[in-house]
Design a protein around this nucleic acid. Structure first.
Lengths: 144, 144
DNA sequence: CTGTTATTTAGAATGATTAAAAATGAAGGC
DNA sequence: GCCTTCATTTTTAATCATTCTAAATAACAG
C-alpha cells in the first residue's frame, strides 16, 4: 500500500518540471510551471504572478516573465496570443488550437481532428518548412 | 477622348475605398487604404505612416492608427498579429492565413484549399459560433 | 565546500498603441 | 452654396505589457 505512493509519483505531483538540458531548476520555475498545470485556464503573466505569490511571496513579476520565457523556449509551455492582448500560457503540449469566447474573454483549447495535417487544408508554397502553427478562433458561445 | 477618362474610372483608380455605412470618407482614410492596396507586403502601422506621408505629409501617426482601426472595424482590412510584434495590415478579404519567414520577418498570404471548412479539421465544441479564425504559421523558406 | 555562471530581483526603460482635448472638415438640410 | 453638427484629425501625453540593467543570490560542477 505504502509502495503505491512511490517516490516517482510524489515527484510527479510536486515537482513535475521536467529536467531539460540547459534549463536550471529553480523553485521559481517549478512553481510557475506547477501553477500552469494546476489551473489550465490560460492565465496571463500577471495572473500567474498573482497565483505564484501565494506560494512564493517574494517572487517578482520580472521573474515570472523570465520563467515563462524559459519554459516556452524549452517547449514545455505554449504562449497564446489573441489580438495583441497580454500573452497567455498553456502547458498543453498536444498539438491544438485555441478558441476565445468574445463575451467572457476566456480561452479554451481546441483539439484537431485525428490524422489531419496542415497540408490537407492549406496551400503551402514550395520549400517552406513550418515550424510553428497557430490556430486562434474567436466567437460566441450559446448560453445554456 | 476626354470622355474615355470617365469620372467613374477616376474614382476607381484614385478613391477605391468603398463607401460603407458609418465610415466617413476622408482623404486620410482613402490614402491609408490605397497604400495597403498598392504594396501588399503586410506593413505595420509605422510603415504605413512612412508611406502615406509621401502623399499626405501632414498626416499624424495617430491618424494612421485611427484609419487602420476604422478600416478593420468595417471589415475592409484585416489585422495580422505575430507574437505580440507590431500589428500588420492586409487588404486581402478572401479567407486566408499567413506565413512568416522567421529569417526575414516577411509575411505572406496562405490560401486555404477550396471547399475546406474549419469544422473539417478541428473539433468545435457544441454551441460555439466562430466569428474570426486566424491561422498563423512561422517557419523557414528554402533559399533558392 | 567553493567557484563559476545563470537566475532572481527591483526598478527603470522601451515600444506599440490608445486617450484627451482642441482644431478641422465631411455630410446633410436649408 | 452656406450652416450646423458631429465625426475625424492632430498634437501631446498617457498607458500597457514587456524587456532591460545592474546588483544580489543561488544552482550546479568539480
Amino acid at each position: 500500500m505504502k509502495q503505491t505512493k512511490s517516490i516517482a509519483t510524489d515527484k510527479k505531483l510536486n515537482a513535475p518540471l521536467p529536467v531539460v538540458s540547459g534549463l536550471r531548476l529553480t523553485k521559481q520555475r517549478q512553481e510557475v510551471y506547477q501553477t500552469l498545470l494546476e489551473k489550465r485556464d490560460h492565465p496571463t503573466a500577471g495572473e500567474v504572478f498573482k497565483r505564484v505569490r501565494k506560494k512564493l511571496p517574494t517572487i517578482s513579476l520580472a521573474t515570472v516573465y523570465n520563467c515563462l520565457e524559459a519554459l516556452v523556449d524549452h517547449r514545455l509551455v505554449r504562449q497564446v496570443n489573441f489580438e495583441r492582448k497580454s500573452s497567455r500560457f498553456c502547458p498543453n503540449l498536444v498539438e491544438h488550437g485555441h478558441f476565445q469566447d468574445t463575451s467572457t474573454g476566456k480561452v479554451y483549447d481546441i483539439t484537431i481532428k485525428d490524422g489531419v495535417d496542415l497540408a490537407d487544408f492549406i496551400n503551402l508554397p514550395e520549400g517552406v518548412c513550418v515550424q510553428e502553427a497557430e490556430i486562434n478562433l474567436r466567437g460566441a458561445v450559446a448560453d445554456s
